[in-house]
């Protein structure tokens, strides 16, 4: 058991190190005439930068190498790496929370009421067939370049994912379990609280991990199209200067944020769904 774990970790490290080496020095192999045809032009640092340059850019954007000192640099640049990260995270968080909460509520209500579900069905199908990203310019028009438009974009992306899963989860609750609860004295509301919600929770959580990524996508796309601050804005600015290293810095930060949030969701999920066999050992 332990042996396998160590081996897996070892392989992962080897792959990581190899990838970094190719990234850092791969393009230099072009200088050797014989190897030139084997080095694809995509390895050009102009496109993908290289780890050392990314690190330098990180220090620069993060005000960690400014001769004037951290505070002065931080104050001078309103979209410095830290502020941009905080802004993007904050917008993403509110988009995620509002999207999940409203998605769960709508899913539960429509899932429990055939009547309402039938009434709403065509509208939901129609709304769902619009690519959400196509709405972003409209949302920015409505809510301005500030944070609100990013929250709304993230909300709309998250809402549908969570809604559909909650709806399906609510629909697939075992009817006999509901009947059993009713026969043990549960009111409609108690059934919802003690049977429908716990039973649909697995479905809800199945949508929350992707919802985290979707919230981030929503905010970043919003920032691409029009924003004053944020990591997306940082990327767009770097693109204007053809600065791949700075773009990569923002991308790495997003990756780290994404990993951390997915981890948190997973822990909560493992705790709340500890009655399911696949989460048995993770609590």
């Amino acid at each position: 058991m332990v042996g396998t774990k160590v081996k897996i970790l070892l392989w992962q490290l080897v792959i990581l190190a190899t990838a970094f080496c190719i990234w850092e020095w791969g393009y230099d192999l072009r200088k050797v005439a014989a190897l030139k045809p084997f080095v694809p032009s995509i390895l050009d640092p102009y496109f993908i930068s290289k780890p050392s340059a990314i690190w330098t850019s990180f220090l620069k954007l993060g005000c960690l190498s400014d001769p004037a000192g951290f505070i002065a640099c931080f104050d001078k640049n309103p979209n410095n790496l830290w502020l941009a990260t905080v802004v993007t995270l904050k917008n993403m968080w509110w988009g995620f929370v509002s999207g999940s909460v409203s998605g769960v509520l709508a899913g539960l209500i429509l899932g429990r009421s055939d009547y309402l579900a039938k009434i709403c069905e065509p509208y939901i199908v129609a709304m769902n067939s619009i690519p959400r990203i196509a709405l972003v310019p409209l949302i920015i028009l409505m809510f301005g370049l500030g944070d609100m438009s990013k929250v709304v974009t993230a909300w709309i992306v998250v809402f549908f994912v969570v809604f559909f899963n909650t709806f399906e989860g609510t629909r697939s609750v075992d009817r006999d379990q509901i009947a059993a609860a009713r026969l043990l004295g549960a009111s409609e509301l108690t059934v919802l609280r003690t049977v429908v919600i716990p039973s649909a929770l697995a479905w809800v959580f199945a949508s929350l991990t992707p919802a985290v990524s979707f919230a981030l996508i929503g905010v970043i796309v919003g920032e691409f199209i029009g924003a004053e601050r944020g990591l997306g804005k940082l990327i767009i600015e770097a693109e204007a200067r053809a600065n791949a290293a700075e773009m990569m810095v923002a991308i790495f930060i997003m990756m780290i944020v994404g990993i951390m949030l997915a981890f948190v969701v997973r822990r909560v999920q493992a705790y709340l769904l500890r009655w399911q066999p696949q989460f048995e050992r993770q609590v």
Binding site: D174, A180, L183, L184, G185, A186, T194, P198, L201, W275
Partner: peptide, 30 residues
């Protein structure tokens, strides 16, 4: 539902998200 009536199902309807004691205590709890 008639509160005087108890029902045991043909299919397994134990609540998988509740422990044994929480399952048995369900009716009293609510």
């Amino acid at each position: 539902i008639n509160p005087k009536v108890g029902y045991v199902f043909q299919r397994d309807t134990v609540f998988p998200w509740r422990t044994v004691e929480a399952n048995i205590g369900y009716g009293l709890e609510i």
